[in-house]
Nucleic acid binder design. Structure first.
Lengths: 161, 161
DNA sequence: TTGATTGCAAATGCTTTGCAGCCGC
DNA sequence: GCGGCTGCAAAGCATTTGCAATCAA
């Protein structure tokens, strides 16, 4: 089962430095320490293009030669979430949380129930939802979580109907 | 922690009959049996106005004198979901699923992070999301899950800011 | 040095499953 | 009576937590 379709994967080495610097700055700015596990999780999140289970992430990290404990990955991700560095969503019917970098632009997820593929969809939709709520209902949105499941174009063309 | 604000709770006895008939019809139409646990879960879903944990549901059922096993409640809810009688959502940060009747109209949830209140919001928003996806992306939406968390009007007025 | 952070293992919480007995049809 | 359903207990996952050792600052 495949889990993403992102393509803008810049040359790894080039930006690896930048990413690391970004992490260290954020950590220090908030009074947290810069540690190997945190660097490893951060790097893995960048390498894998989104939507990984904590377990998958841990495997990925191990494959890169770092070996971080599951519990630490959980703790690190919680921290990253607090610092707005990462986000979790529950996609599809699975009950395991899936993690990705916290992109500054708001987007939502398109989960294909046939091939399991997860697509990002960036657009004004989420922004307009916020607006709508704030104006019409006095509700101050903090987080907008939109997950759409169905059949992606490819699977519609392949299958019948 | 309170969990809902629905008001259209019709006179219980009046519609209880109707609801029961509805359940039995749907069950039989799909080749399933009409049993006490199923009636009990169905009734509890109607009594409680939405968003109950399986555990809460089971307690509610027990309070009504029916005593159904947790496992059976799970199984029953799974069945109801298949038959489009009930829906589950994961609201807020808790990891327990919350169940409600499958209202025919599409709606989404507004979760207040301060008071824990969950509001339904019925509108054209979900429909327009569907449309947008189908036209613009060839994606055939099956289920649209939209959960917005933030601060409700009341909590904004009470608190500062 | 000192306290934040980690690894390990055990615990927790929600949900699922195996199976023998029960009951709707 | 047959086979679907239920209750009970045990198992399964994802996630959390306690605690001693470790390491960044």
């Amino acid at each position: 089962m495949q889990h993403d379709t992102e393509q803008q994967r810049r040359t790894p080495d080039a930006s690896a430095e930048t990413h690391r610097a970004e992490l260290e700055a954020t950590l220090r700015a908030n009074g947290h320490r810069v540690t190997e596990p945190r660097r490893a999780v951060w790097a893995a999140l960048h390498r894998a293009s989104g939507h990984l289970t904590v377990e998958e992430l841990t495997t990925e990290i191990a494959a890169a030669g770092a070996d971080v404990d599951l519990a630490s990955v959980y703790r690190t991700l919680d921290l990253f979430e607090q610092l707005d560095l990462a986000r979790m969503s529950r996609l599809g019917d699975s009950d395991a949380g899936r993690w990705e970098l916290a992109h500054p632009d708001e987007h939502f997820h398109l989960v294909c129930l046939v091939c399991g593929n997860v697509d990002h969809h960036v657009g004004s939709l989420v922004a307009s939802i916020r607006e709508h709520l704030e104006e019409g209902h006095g509700f101050e949105p903090d987080r907008v979580e939109l997950v759409v499941s169905g059949r992606c174009r490819r699977c519609r063309e392949d299958g019948s109907t």
